[in-house]
């Protein structure tokens, strides 16, 4: 058994609202071990980003967060953020400071966390840019974020994240804003960093293809809850939750046989402000019965762990 790094237990996130609390995340747990890559998949409002932001203590003050977040066996503290656990986001332009040169932004983290001197920080910044395969790295140090392409900016964000040799990298939709060829480059870079540094990676995405390329395990979220989790090889080939299965089928692929219209899921993902009773997926589920409307199914272990009263069983 590998060493557990980040342990999130029974996490919930609520926002008080006049019409009743908005339940963004309900009873979410994740045990991340060293060197693995976990993909978290779901549609808008599924709670995937909220769960991770809550774990990192990055939610606004009015969010009510409950549950336990531990790191290396001890409670997670703010000091670990940036040092042991680093994070990158979807839009590198808004995460970078527009009026600071790239080199200074990477060095900032080095001087702040590692107390490096100016010259040493600059040398290390250059080394980091080369590690994330930024071309012409020396010149880039003195450029501003707006002078870089979207792909370059995401590489710079990754360089900043790597500055303190973190054990965990959390990537929230890191390639959603990028073109496909650049997306593939960034994903290949993340896979390489994970392999070479033994760094654990959590990648949040709505794209199952992204998960298939880089993740070892995948968690599927719906309506703020974990509905299925398992090894990528199992979950993406024979999912047990009807939602995971329907999501896979409704995704157009360049290698599907095109023998009929695309599978669809009727209706739309629920708003966290108005979650259906019982299993949040029941209004859209073809397997739903009375029990699904009244009671949320507990996550039960199996070939994959699944929270469903009527999971799809192997044929």
């Amino acid at each position: 058994m590998k060493e557990s790094l980040l342990e999130i237990d029974h996490l919930s996130v609520r926002y008080p609202a006049p019409g009743g609390d908005i339940a963004a995340v309900n009873d979410f747990s994740l045990n991340l071990v060293a060197g693995e890559c976990v993909g978290i998949v779901g549609e808008s409002g599924a709670g995937k980003s909220q769960a991770l932001l809550a774990a990192m203590g990055l939610l606004p003050r009015h969010a009510r967060v409950a549950g336990s977040i531990r790191y290396g066996g001890a409670p997670f503290t703010r000091e670990l953020r940036g040092r042991r656990v680093a994070m990158i986001f979807q839009d590198p332009m808004t995460s970078l400071t527009p009026h600071l040169r790239v080199g200074a932004q990477i060095a900032e983290s080095l001087t702040h966390h590692l107390r490096l001197s100016g010259a040493a920080a600059r040398a290390r910044a250059l080394e980091l840019l080369r590690q994330v395969q930024v071309t012409d790295a020396e010149r880039r140090l003195d450029q501003y974020p707006h002078e870089l392409s979207g792909g370059m900016r995401q590489r710079v964000m990754i360089a900043i994240a790597l500055a303190c040799n973190p054990e965990v990298l959390i990537a929230d939709e890191p390639t959603t804003a990028l073109d496909v060829t650049v997306q593939a480059q960034i994903l290949a870079l993340l896979a390489g960093l994970k392999r070479e540094r033994g760094m654990a990676v959590v990648i949040v995405t709505h794209d199952l293809g992204v998960v298939a390329g880089v993740a070892d395990r995948v968690l599927v979220m719906y309506g703020g809850r974990l509905v299925e989790s398992g090894a990528v090889a199992d979950l993406l080939t024979t999912p047990r939750h009807p939602y995971s299965r329907a999501l896979l089928r409704s995704m157009p692929r360049i290698d599907d046989p095109l023998d009929g219209p695309l599978h669809t899921i009727a209706g739309q993902p629920p708003s966290p402000a108005r979650l259906p009773t019982g299993c949040a997926f029941h209004p859209r589920c073809e397997r739903a019965s009375d029990v699904c409307r009244s009671r949320f199914p507990a996550l039960a272990a199996g070939r994959t762990d699944v929270a469903c009263h009527h999971p799809v069983e192997d044929a």
Partner: peptide, 26 residues
Amino acid sequence: ALLAAVPIPDPARQPARLAATLGGEL
């Protein structure tokens, strides 16, 4: 290159596809 970069949700094939992607930027 464009077709090779489209992710497919097949864990048996996708990691190898990723490793062979087009370099450079627009």
